[in-house]
Amino acid sequence: MREWIRAFVGVFFAFLGVQSEADRRYDFEKGRFSVFAVAGLILTFVFLSIVYGLVQLALIYVQ
């Protein structure tokens, strides 16, 4: 469970483009590729949902 949380946090910060050198090193040395790939796919879906939601919000504002 702890590995999954770390992976999600790592991918989230990768989305932001911000990560400390120590965490990056930890992720690359201890993390498993498959866990990061799944976390990446899930957060991509979350990101797209947020963009979609923001567009819907803008459309509500328009009408």
């Binding site: 919000l57 803008a58 459309l59 504002y61 328009v62």
Partner: peptide
């Protein structure tokens, strides 16, 4: 940027 996109979307529409 998101805050600016909302009125910009309204105008574009």
């Amino acid at each position: 940027l998101i805050a600016m996109a909302i009125p910009a979307t309204a105008t574009l529409m």
